[in-house]
């Protein structure tokens, strides 16, 4: 017969201060919670998704101090004083981030569930490298799984956003939109 030694839920709450999407916030939460749970359940930021909660699918990627982190594997407690960016913080005020714009334009988001993780991971890639090759994009995104798109439209969206962020007046290739003739 199984018994329960100690319930996790009756631990005293932790209380931390951090910056989320550019704003200073305080949050209290059960101390065993992951960053994913704290964001979704204690801060209402449900834009960060979960597909496995085991660090295998990449859905829950957020940025901590500008670096992609799987929020399901990071403890909320470890975020004291850190800078966290979620998909809700990607837009610059009223303007979508170029990646959000190109993902929308090219249908790189189908069901949209993996999209936040891809967007944030790609954002860091483009901050490091303004003109990544297709192979570099593949490698940077290899920890994110998408079951809808076959990744092709995602690569094309990253390349288009990169071009626009370099200041080019870039439009999608005809083949991307209409297929090979």
């Amino acid at each position: 017969m199984k018994t329960i030694k100690k319930s996790r839920t009756r631990l005293e709450k932790a209380h931390i201060s951090l910056r989320v999407n550019g704003e200073s916030v305080e949050v209290a939460f059960a101390p065993h919670k992951t960053l994913l749970e704290v964001l979704r359940e204690d801060m209402g930021l449900t834009g960060t998704k979960h597909g496995c909660e085991l660090g295998e699918c990449g859905c829950c990627a957020v940025l901590v101090d500008g670096q992609p982190v799987l929020s399901c594997l990071a403890l909320g407690l470890a975020m004291e004083g850190r800078e966290v960016t979620t998909v809700e913080g990607m837009a610059d005020g009223t303007s979508l981030h170029p990646l959000q714009q190109t993902f929308a334009e090219l249908g790189a988001a189908q069901c949209g569930y993996c999209t936040p993780g891809f967007l944030l991971t790609a954002k860091v890639l483009l901050e490091k490298d303004a003109k990544p090759s297709r192979q570099e994009i593949k490698e940077a995104l290899s920890g994110n799984i998408c079951r809808c798109t076959g990744y092709i439209k995602i690569y094309e969206a990253v390349e288009l956003a990169a071009a626009r962020m370099r200041g080019e007046q870039a439009e999608p290739a005809e083949e991307t939109i209409y297929g090979r003739q």
Partner: peptide
Amino acid sequence: PFHKVDVKAKCTGEA
């Protein structure tokens, strides 16, 4: 090639 009516919600965490 219009974008989808729901895609911006999916790219911003609004959905």
